[in-house]
């Protein structure tokens, strides 16, 4: 990034038609894969390593964030050899707390920014928000796009804003939240994905978790296909982060199947794929424990932080 911001070109939005029913049929096909035995264990480990353990509440305190970080470092010490999660995702005000709590680990700190979750503020404030998070030590920034501008057809505005935030991120990696639950159709999801990728997103992300529906397999598939188109065109790999609503390990494994069969094994890596989730980790841990110990588990045996 030689400091030069990319310029918006409307032509990138050509050929963005998506047939919703076909997307859904394809998404269902991924859920028909039967993941058993060794592949299940491998998959569950991958899921754990890709989780952005998240707390994004008005009532977040340093105490809460600290506890979450301890959970991130000690997922379930009864079972040796488990990976740690990829990152902790918090508000900018909590970044320094998380940064300190995670010192010495490989776990990244991700911060939401840009007037999260609505994005209804000025560019100036959004950039300040971003710089604050980065200065506090955030390794990753999860921004929201201006959905209002997007719906108003101001694609260049949306594009330029992402490019500006990307610049403000410096070395921090940028995840661009589309808030697909507010976009209306899969065609719009594809359009927003295309804009975000062209503007410099390192990751594209479905949702803030504050709007329903959040991540779904069809939405994620369309985003993965947009990432694939970019890869075909440029050879560059953009990451994907579905967030919100993925709380069961079986569903998480189906997401991995979808990633594998859409983008290939190269994307099965926390550098390129994340789950934004708060309760998924424990469900995966219960499955891992079941596979390891051979009997069904109770939530009482898995710490909640």
């Amino acid at each position: 990034m030689a400091g030069k911001k990319p310029a918006f070109n409307i032509q990138i939005l050509n050929h963005s038609t998506v047939e919703q029913t076909g997307v859904e049929e394809r998404a269902i096909r991924f859920t028909k894969r039967s993941i058993k035995g060794a592949s299940k264990m491998q998959g569950l480990h991958m899921v754990l390593s890709m989780i952005d353990l998240t707390t994004l509440e008005g009532k977040d305190t340093p105490g809460k964030v600290n506890q979450l970080c301890i959970k991130a470092r000690h997922l379930h010490d009864h079972i040796p050899g488990l990976p740690s999660v990829a990152a902790i995702c918090v508000y900018p005000s909590m970044v320094s707390v998380a940064k300190k709590a995670l010192q010495g680990s490989t776990i990244k700190v991700a911060s939401v920014a840009t007037a999260f979750p609505s994005g209804q503020s000025s560019l100036r404030i959004k950039l300040a928000d971003t710089r604050f998070a980065v200065e506090e030590g955030a390794d990753e920034v999860d921004m929201v796009i201006s959905r209002g501008k997007f719906h108003a057809g101001e694609y260049a505005y949306v594009f330029d804003e992402i490019a500006a935030v990307k610049e403000a991120c410096g070395k921090a990696r940028l995840k661009v939240i589309l808030e697909t639950g507010e976009l209306g159709t899969l065609d719009q999801v594809k359009k927003a994905s295309t804009i975000a990728i062209a503007a410099g997103a390192d990751f594209i992300k479905t949702s803030t978790g504050k709007i329903q529906p959040a991540a779904t397999m069809p939405v994620t598939l369309v985003m993965l296909e947009t990432i694939r188109d970019h890869f075909y065109k440029t050879g560059k790999k953009v990451g994907m982060k579905p967030a919100g609503g993925i709380s069961k390990s079986k569903l998480a494994l189906h997401y991995l199947v979808m990633v594998k069969e859409t983008l290939g094994d190269a994307w099965l890596d926390k550098q390129l794929f994340r789950f934004g989730a708060s309760s998924l980790a424990n469900d995966v841990l219960m499955q891992v424990a079941k596979e390891t110990l051979g009997h069904y588990q109770s939530p009482n045996y898995f710490s909640i932080d």
Partner: peptide
């Protein structure tokens, strides 16, 4: 021909 079924027409997508 497929029929789009999205939020608002009764389902979620």
């Amino acid at each position: 021909h497929p029929v789009q079924t999205i939020a608002g027409s009764g389902g979620a997508y």
